[in-house]
Design a protein around this nucleic acid. Sequence first.
DNA 1: AAAGCGGATGTTATCGATAACATTTCTCCG
DNA 2: CGGAGAAATGTTATCGATAACATCCGCTTT
Lengths: 336, 336
Amino acid sequence: MDKASRSPAMTDVARLAGVSHQTVSRVLNDHPNVKEQTRIRVRAAIAELGYRPNRAARALVTGRSQLIGVVARNSTLYGPASMLTEFEQAAADAGFAVSVGSVRELDRSSISAVVDRHLDQRVAGLVVIANVASAAEALAEIPGDVPVVFIDGDPASGRPLVTVDQVAGARAATRHLLDAGHETVWHVSGPTDWFDSAGRIQGWKQTLQEAGAEVPPLLSADWSAAEGYRTGQMLARMPEVTAIFTANDHLALGILRALHERGRRVPHDVSIVGFDDVPEAAYFIPPLTTVRQAFGDVARAALSLLLGQMRDDPGTADQIVVPPQLIVRESVARPA
Amino acid sequence: MDKASRSPAMTDVARLAGVSHQTVSRVLNDHPNVKEQTRIRVRAAIAELGYRPNRAARALVTGRSQLIGVVARNSTLYGPASMLTEFEQAAADAGFAVSVGSVRELDRSSISAVVDRHLDQRVAGLVVIANVASAAEALAEIPGDVPVVFIDGDPASGRPLVTVDQVAGARAATRHLLDAGHETVWHVSGPTDWFDSAGRIQGWKQTLQEAGAEVPPLLSADWSAAEGYRTGQMLARMPEVTAIFTANDHLALGILRALHERGRRVPHDVSIVGFDDVPEAAYFIPPLTTVRQAFGDVARAALSLLLGQMRDDPGTADQIVVPPQLIVRESVARPA
DNA sequence: AAAGCGGATGTTATCGATAACATTTCTCCG
DNA sequence: CGGAGAAATGTTATCGATAACATCCGCTTT
């Protein structure tokens, strides 16, 4: 049959239930003024036909889809990847689909291309995981009428934003090393144009200064184990280095290896604290003390901010900061 | 003005260009029968108004969106996560948006929920990263008229499928260990219901049998460093174990630590080969010999299969197998 | 020069939902 | 018991695109 090939529409349901299509629409949208009995009849018809509302039609008339666009950097870095899946999960629970638009670099033209693609799809809202400063200018282009939430963006931007409190995380890590008795703490940071890096650097520096400790020169790297290793080779040759705080766990891994090759034992000779708590961190040699970020909380917070904006709800806050948590394992000890 | 708040539609462009909306549509779709001069006028009007076609309207009338749905397990595992971002990238290059539907478990009900959500959005096609057998039955529910491609699915299913040649990868790894002089090779596999695991187990076993080596009992684990560690604690106590092939790099990491704690040196006492080549693998202690999967190739192949189906192009193959590559580092040596 | 043809363009119907308004049916109360 | 007002339901317009068909025009063809 030709009929069978086309999926049923609202009018088909209406006919079967003996009502008008509008009543079907009311049932679907939980409109209050529908008699219970009718509601049941309609539901039955929906089930019988396997009816499934056409979102395109709905989007056309309402001007809003049930789709949230995410702009993220193309990366398998643990942080961004976790954030993405957590957000998708939260959005799905709230009945939204998520369209990912990843981008090789967070520069102006790439971002506006992705944002354009999202706007083409008439997304109901946008989430931008904008962890670098260069993103800022491109984001000015996002039209004001589409709800946007930033994750990891510029805390000073004044835009709706959810972040992990990087400063607090870095303070906890640095504090932990100082408390163990180290005179000072070296820091291997991520790329300095990332907000995450900036916050961690700031927290580290502040804590040292408050403790009256000398602030060693900053070593910056990308996020990779490879650069951690290179930096580690240098640090391993410096006997005065007894405590290192790295901006993520992979950097720490590279440093662990460099120290190991040079015969410097962790934590006996050198203590080290990472950041992220990747699932493997507990199985490094030795198990890594690190700072865990609650990506799930961030994702859920971002979603609720976004939904608040969609509802035009003035009661919702516009900046949420999620506290991180120090996870103590075995990579820190009192200096020799 | 109220006018300014609503984005321009096709008729607005038509009015400005002095043509009918249908001509605008023709220009947009590169229809041949449009005079060059008209085409230029329309293009100018489009640019002037900043017109952007409404995909919802198009989807409504054509019944197809420019959206590809991906069904994947919610996970930050390196493999699946890489696959996802690679696929998104490829799809974006081809002008498609990607809607992710992740799922906590690949069981029947979760999968059909996600597939339903995708179908609601009228996706133009589906990509299912179905790495476990339990997924199979749920996938039978996908209606036949929507193009589907599987990544990592059941090689025997007869459905359009792209996979990495797990068997070949495992053979290369096992072979490499045997060639180094080991009498046999132990294998720590992933969950046995994953196709990936199954292929790797098969390749390992075959290679041993062909070489006339004894096949040690299979040790199976999940994919985590944690289980690798637990399994490693056992293996470390068995002096006859000199060569281990693990189903992924994280398992290898856990085993490395267990061996280290027990004083068994790698590769001097025990050789080990992983799978995946996560970016950190080169910085394990020691650097890990492993098998690299070309996720980018897989993603692009999957996309082209999908596009082929959409075009109803009979010329496209329906199963593509991407070869993996052995990456030799320092975790393998000749036995003592 | 009339017929015929194809290229360029316009007109109208259509997809499947919601919005806005119209109408019918209850229910309650004086 | 009649009428007001609310509840329940129906009717029609609409969103913005493409599909199908209609028309117009300029040329070739004979």
